[in-house]
C-alpha cells in the first residue's frame, strides 16, 4: 500500500515539522558563536580571494535544515576562543550529535558521501586539481535552506518520487527520507532537479573538460518526460529517478542504475513507473540526439518527416499562391478593360 504509506507519512511528517517549528532554534548557538559571527562587518580581505564575509545571519541559520546542529559539530577543529582565521573545510561525512528519528544511532552523512565518492561526481585521482574542483561537491546541490513543508505543494508532489526507490524501508524510513530531503535544494520540485543538473550538464564550456555527452539535457527536453515535466506533470521521471541522487555512475559501470543489466529495473522503479517494461524498451537511448552513427533509423525517420512536411507544404502553398494570383489578376484585368 505505497499510497497509504505516503499519505500517513505526510501526516506524521506534518506533526514532526510542527513540533520542530515550535522548538527554540537557539540551541544551535549554545556556545555563543554568534557573539562575533552576527556582526555584519565580520570578515577578511585577501589579495587572492577578495572580501570574504564570516557573518552568520542568525535568522537564516535558525530556519535552516541544520538549525539544531551546534557549530562545532561540523567545525570540529575549533578548540580555542578566539579561533584562528584559517579553519578546516567542513566535511559532510562527520558524525554529528543528533540521532536519527526512530533510531538510537548517531547521525552522519557517510552513506551519502560514500556513494558520492565513488560516483562520477567523486574525486578522480587521474584528474587535475581544477578538474576535480569542477565537479559538484555536497554543498553545490545542498544549500542548507529550510523549506516549509506544510505550505509546499511542489514538495508534497515531489515526495511521490522518494518511495520509488525507498519502498520497503517502512514508515520510519519514509519519514526519515522525506524529512531529510525536505531541507535540501533538490527537494523543491521535480523541475528544480532538472534545472540543478542542467546548471552543469547543459553548460558546454563546463562539460568540455570531461568526457561527457553534451546532448543529454537537450535530449531529455526533447523527450516526453522533459516536455511533460515543463507542463507540470510531476509524476514523470526527472534526472534523479533514473540516475540516482548520489551514486551517479557511468552506464558502463555494472553497479550503475543505467547499466544495461539494471536499466529494466530502473525504468520499472519498484513498479511505480513502467512496470513490466521489456529490456529493449529500457535499452533504447532516450536522450541522445539521433545521428547517423548512434541511431540511424531514428535519424532518417526524423528527417523523413521534416522533408515530407516541407515538400507537401511547399506544393500546397504554391497551389494556393497561384490560385489566389489568378483571382487577383482577373480583377485587375477587368478593371483595366473598363
Amino acid at each position: 500500500m505505497p499510497a497509504t504509506i505516503y499519505r500517513h507519512s505526510i501526516l506524521v511528517l506534518l506533526l514532526v515539522m510542527l513540533t520542530a517549528l515550535s522548538a527554540p532554534a537557539q540551541q544551535a548557538d549554545a556556545e555563543n558563536c554568534n557573539l562575533c559571527h552576527s556582526l555584519a562587518m565580520m570578515g577578511i580581505a585577501t589579495p587572492s580571494e577578495g572580501l570574504r564575509s564570516f557573518e552568520v545571519t542568525a535568522n537564516a541559520y535558525s530556519h535552516s535544515t541544520h538549525r539544531n546542529v551546534i557549530c562545532r559539530d561540523c567545525h570540529t577543529d575549533i578548540n580555542v576562543f578566539p579561533h584562528p582565521v584559517e579553519v578546516a573545510k567542513v566535511e559532510c561525512s562527520k558524525a554529528c550529535h543528533i540521532t536519527k528519528p526512530f533510531a538510537l544511532t548517531g547521525y552522519s552523512h557517510t552513506e551519502q558521501t560514500d556513494a558520492h565518492a565513488i560516483s562520477a561526481h567523486g574525486f578522480n585521482s587521474e584528474y587535475s586539481v581544477e578538474k576535480n574542483q569542477a565537479k559538484p561537491d555536497c554543498k553545490y546541490c545542498h544549500s542548507n535552506t529550510f523549506r516549509n513543508v506544510v505550505n509546499d505543494e511542489a514538495l508534497q508532489e515531489n515526495s511521490q518520487h522518494c518511495v520509488r526507490c525507498h519502498e520497503g524501508e517502512g514508515l520510519a524510513g519514509v519519514i526519515l527520507h522525506v524529512s531529510s530531503h525536505s531541507g535540501h535544494r533538490t527537494a523543491e520540485a521535480s523541475i528544480n532537479v532538472v534545472e540543478l543538473c542542467s546548471s552543469c550538464h547543459a553548460d558546454q564550456g563546463h562539460m568540455k573538460q570531461f568526457d561527457v555527452n553534451l546532448t543529454q539535457v537537450g535530449g531529455y527536453e526533447r523527450h516526453f518526460h522533459g516536455k511533460a515535466l515543463k507542463r507540470g506533470l510531476n509524476e514523470v521521471a526527472n534526472c534523479m529517478d533514473c540516475h540516482r541522487n548520489h551514486l551517479n555512475l557511468s552506464a558502463e559501470d555494472p553497479n550503475s542504475s543505467i547499466h544495461p543489466n539494471n536499466i529494466q529495473q530502473t525504468c520499472s522503479a519498484n513498479s511505480y513507473c513502467h512496470s513490466g517494461v521489456s529490456s529493449t524498451f529500457a535499452a533504447s537511448a532516450i536522450h541522445s540526439e539521433p545521428t547517423t552513427q548512434n541511431n540511424p533509423i531514428l535519424f532518417y525517420v526524423e528527417w523523413g518527416f521534416i522533408i515530407l512536411t516541407a515538400a507537401t507544404m511547399a506544393l500546397l502553398f504554391a497551389h494556393i499562391f497561384l490560385d489566389f494570383g489568378r483571382w487577383v489578376g482577373d480583377i485587375w484585368m477587368r478593371r483595366k478593360e473598363k
Binding site: 512496470s275 524498451f281 533504447s284 533509423i297 525517420v301 518527416f305
Partner: peptide, 26 residues
C-alpha cells in the same frame, strides 16, 4: 508503451514518438 515493447523492438516506441509529434504538425 510497455505492452507494445513486449512484442516490438524498443526503437518502435521512439519512432512512434517522433511520428506522432511530426505528423501532427503536418
Amino acid at each position: 508503451p510497455v505492452l507494445f515493447s513486449k512484442y516490438l523492438p524498443g526503437i518502435v516506441i521512439q519512432i512512434a514518438y517522433i511520428a506522432h509529434s511530426d505528423e501532427a504538425m503536418l
